[in-house]
Amino acid sequence: MVTTFKINEMDVSAGEGETILDVARQHHIHVPTLCHLEGLTPVGACRLCLVEVKGSAALVPACVTRAAEGMEISTDSERLQRYRRMIVEMLFAEGNHICAVCVSNGHCELQALAGDLGMTHSRLGFLYRQKRIDASHYRFAIDHNRCVLCTRCVRVCDEIEGAHTWDVMGRGIQSQVITDLAQPWGSSSTCTNCGKCINACPTGALFKKSKAVGEMEKDTHFLGYIRTMREVK
């Protein structure tokens, strides 16, 4: 069923299964995202894509919401911008993001978000929690200091690779992505060494060992390719 509605006062339409985010992107309306990755099941967790619906007090995540007929959506109000800046501030305060010495410096989605949203500094207290780096894998490494818990690695490993090596342990602020039974990645019996998680990761948390500061560029195009090839079958 096709619905017609408005985004930022522009008339748009959504086809079966298309979310507000899908439609916004078709019309080059920028809605920031972090946990979303085209080709993976959306989870609505980072809350950056929240948008306003006229007549409703509640904000809705564009990545998982289908617009109803006649809805009037706005994606860029002053309030939304403020909330988004705070979300990014929260992520910087939660982890230990030292862009200057990060492999993904210059290619990081979190860093870019901060720049785009004008998040120039954090008014929140940094948590400075000690987090591990696991470099036991022969090709890859994970630095939990830089992980934003978007679970893109978990989903790509489960949904695309089918290995489900990654998952999340613990809860709340203690949450952490793990391989198998929270064992060193290098000793995982399920990892296929495919590297999809590396590319799906928006920050420098997952990286190739051969990369130095600023050298780790991610490429997520494989997702679209795999999806197309699977549809062809």
Partner: peptide, 10 residues
Amino acid sequence: TGNVPSMRNM
């Protein structure tokens, strides 16, 4: 942000 010097805060 504290940057590199703040890495000792852990």
